[in-house]
């Protein structure tokens, strides 16, 4: 019955929302940031251990819908071993993909989120952990970031 939804809830996404990877606090984190969409109730914290320019490890905790949780899970998998710049570049590519549906060559597994663009109301879910990760790496203040605004 939900054939059309396979774009949004791909097997990979379902798997990651039910069994999120790196879903715990990171005691050795060098930075962290909160992503909170109070209207939805999606609320995550992203932790990273960065040495020099390299993200050695990224984890997250919190709760929210399937899309937001799977996105956090796949983000933390992707981030391991990447530089800050690489993560920031991928942030832009993922955002572009989720809003237009165009898949850049190097997004790899993250291509599963291309289907989100057909569900504009859910882009904010899929971007929440990415915004939190970006804020953590930029050493943003204590204010949680949100994607419940015009700018996604």
């Amino acid at each position: 019955m939900f054939d059309d939804l396979n774009d949004l809830y791909q097997q990979v996404i379902l798997d990651h929302c039910k069994r999120p990877r790196n879903f715990h606090e990171l005691l050795q984190a060098t930075c962290s940031a909160q992503g909170n969409n109070p209207l939805c109730g999606d609320n995550y914290k992203v932790f990273a251990r960065v040495e020099g320019e390299v993200i050695q490890e990224m984890t997250f905790t919190g709760s929210g819908c399937c899309i937001s949780k799977a996105s956090g899970s796949l983000l933390t998998e992707f981030a391991k071993g990447k530089t800050r710049n690489e993560l920031e570049r991928m942030f832009e590519e993922v955002r572009e993909m989720m809003t237009t549906g165009k898949v850049a060559e190097d997004v790899g597994k993250l291509a599963v989120f291309a289907g989100v663009h057909k569900y504009p109301a859910r882009v904010k879910c899929a971007m929440l952990a990415w915004h939190a990760a970006k804020a953590a790496l930029q050493g943003a203040g204590a204010e949680p970031v949100t994607t419940e605004s015009e700018e996604i």
Partner: peptide, 9 residues
């Protein structure tokens, strides 16, 4: 299953 996923489906 989150309520928003229920509503989308």
């Amino acid at each position: 299953v989150h309520a928003h996923d229920v509503v989308t489906l």
